[in-house]
């Protein structure tokens, strides 16, 4: 079945993705996403009942270590990449009035 992506869905996904699309981009995104979902829907041909979702192919356990600092103070290096900094901190726009 063909997936029709409406304006509301694109708006909603734009909020989740933190992207502001132009009208032209929105139209393209609707078309692209619909077409990709049609294609992905092929997976519904497969009977996956009783199959566990596999996030990692190899057995993985959480890896723990002692909380010991080994790399020293890298704050100056880290802050050097910030678009804006002040008093050893990142400057962010006001989040509420």
């Amino acid at each position: 079945m063909a997936n029709i992506i409406d304006d509301a869905t694109i708006e909603y996904v734009g909020i989740l993705a933190k992207l502001e699309l132009s009208d032209r981009e929105k139209e393209a995104a609707k078309k692209d996403m619909g077409r990709m979902l049609d294609y992905i829907d092929q997976l519904n041909e497969l009977d996956t009942s009783g199959v566990e979702p596999m996030s990692h192919v190899l057995p993985r356990r959480n890896v723990f270590r002692e909380d010991i600092v080994t790399n020293g103070d890298g704050s100056a290096d880290a802050l050097a990449n910030a678009p804006e900094q002040k008093d050893d901190m990142y400057v962010v726009p006001k989040t509420f009035e």
């Binding site: 992905i40 997976l43 519904n44 497969l46 996956t48 199959v51 566990e52 979702p53 596999m54 996030s55 192919v57």
Partner: peptide, 10 residues
Amino acid sequence: KALRTKALIK
């Protein structure tokens, strides 16, 4: 669904 498919591919 994709993660289940991945298990079948594996």
